[in-house]
């Protein structure tokens, strides 16, 4: 049994912070968990934080794209945040441009994008 990536809920946004090396099984589990949680919580947005991810392969790259597609099917916008330069270069060299995935530099900017999308005020209500 491999480790599972936690899916956290903040308001109507789900936060997936990947803090481990991604194995194929982890990725599959994550997709499953995320789809279930979106349906269960009625989330409108998903933020995938990959700040801690240092190594990617084409499988992980494709996973990001499919996860985004799945979320969109369930009416939740996905934003991938915190991609490292080396990871970005790798993905480009692999020919993966993640066409349908929104990206942001960090978590804060990612959440701002989702807020703008859902028509909520830009500033944090708190």
């Amino acid at each position: 049994m491999s480790e599972r990536v936690p899916v956290l809920r903040i308001g109507d946004v789900l936060l997936v912070s990947i803090q481990m090396d991604l194995e194929d099984q982890t990725v599959m589990d994550l997709q499953e968990d995320l789809a279930e949680r979106i349906v269960a919580t009625g989330a409108r947005g998903v933020v995938i934080d990959i700040t801690a991810v240092e190594i990617v392969d084409s499988f992980v790259g494709r996973m990001l794209a499919t996860t985004a597609s799945i979320s969109r099917m369930l009416d939740a916008e996905t934003v991938v945040v915190g991609m490292r330069p080396a990871v970005a270069i790798t993905l480009v060299e692999l020919g993966l441009s993640l066409g349908g995935v929104r990206t942001a530099l960090d978590l804060e900017k990612g959440l701002a994008i989702l807020r703008r999308r859902s028509g909520l005020p830009d500033a944090d209500p708190a």
């Binding site: 990871v87 480009v92 990206t103």
Partner: peptide, 10 residues
């Protein structure tokens, strides 16, 4: 390539 990589980072 550079532009796509920058876009990937947001």
């Amino acid at each position: 390539k550079t532009i796509v990589a920058a876009r990937l980072m947001g």
